[in-house]
Design a protein around this nucleic acid. Sequence first.
DNA 1: CTAGGGTTAG
Length: 510
Amino acid sequence: MKRAIFSGSLRPLFHARAIISGEIHDPFVAGNILESLLCADPSAHSQARVLLSSFTRRSAFMYNTVLHAYLCNDLPAYALPLFLEMLRHDSTPNKHTFPLLLKAFAHIRLLTSGSTLHSMILKHGLISDPFIHASLIHFYVSLGFFGAAHCAMDENPSPPVSAWTALLSGYAKSGDLIAARKLFDEMPEKNSVSWSAMISGCVQSQLPCEALSLFQEMLATKMAPSSSVIVSILIAMAELGALQEGKWVHALLERNQMFLSSNLKTSLIHMYIKCGDLWSAKQMFEKLRDESVDLWNAMIGGLGLHGRGREALQMFDEMIGEGIRPDDMTFVGLLSACSHSGMVDEGQKCFKSMRILYSIEPKVEHYSCMVDLLGKAGLVWEAVETIKMMPMEPDERIWGSLFGACRVYGEMGLGEAVGKKLVSMEPNEPGLYVLLANLYALAGRWQDAVGVRKMMKSRGVGLEPGCSLIEVDGVVHEFLVADRAHLWVGDIFDKLSEMARVLRAEGCVA
DNA sequence: CTAGGGTTAG
């Protein structure tokens, strides 16, 4: 909604004058009054609804305007009743009505109502409208009805890019990157949104390398990278630890003088943090900091990740000082910062304050951090007490960190129970069997350790080799478990033993 | 006459 004809404090005056003059019976005038109301206060949907009922002659525009307000206020369930009333009344839906309804029905997953819209669209001959077609494809795809989406594609002799993009993105979200890529290659033309959908699909499916090469391809076609592509590609670079590439993107943003939205700033900071360049992250943050919670969360979490718990707490205080309201993610960052830095008291204080001072209910993630914090500090039984206090079912991560604590602090009995629970929760996760077997081995119970290995084999659970990536001077190096294939393997192992010696000399016990 | 689409959020 842009700006309406009757704006500001004059709106009620216009409304009153229209009533007196009788102009209120002109649907165009009345429609504008309705729109002006929602323009002045987008949350005034109930008021708008009452106003709409007060009009004797109602236009499609009026209904569309109220539908739009429902969507903006995240009330898609209100759309169907309004649409039914629209049909009962004198108004015929027009080409603007269908995209709004399809969006609402996709949201609340009304398959049958959506397919009714589909037939209405065909009957009205509106299928070739690019907006409608894209919305229709998006509707089917978001409910997982790919067959229906393809049928709808065939009904339009030349589907718009947006429809192709919706279909592609549907496959990408369902995890079928092969199908997504096939559509991407087949589509007659691509715009920056199509590239964005394809690239973010790769990132979402943990294929950062593919995302990166697509990004290169995109630049080669002279397509200007949109900020949503940049957000996705920075996540991919963060994932890969590709600092040089990340810096290059940062330079690209500055060279093109692109607007740095809070999202973009946050992705940049996240990239620097994940690539280990905390200094640049901090530098950027100080230069570009704004009111966005996400931005502060990224920085607080990043400091914690690098073991700088004190600074994370300081940054939190600073954030509160700036009058920025923390959210649940802020506390995930803070609690994990405390956990990484072994700050038990501070963590407990933080956990208590989130509900009392900031009225944020702790979620599973927060309990998870607390269990981790207590377990890492050797307070295994306090961790158990925390789990008992949880109002929700503990997840695998929580049992996993309790298990880790049991192993480190020699709580064999509890550890065995938790390990078995974990294996039963996720019987297809090879890592869990290995952990349990290692626990038995640690306790000298070799027979049991072998038993777990056998169970793994009989259930057909295979172990994939672990892998890590590191970037040095602009080259990404990949290492698998027990990998000795690297060109400089000798130098690398020399360095590792030197580091181990230094750590031992400093009193660190692995 | 006014308004409606496909991507995104670490």
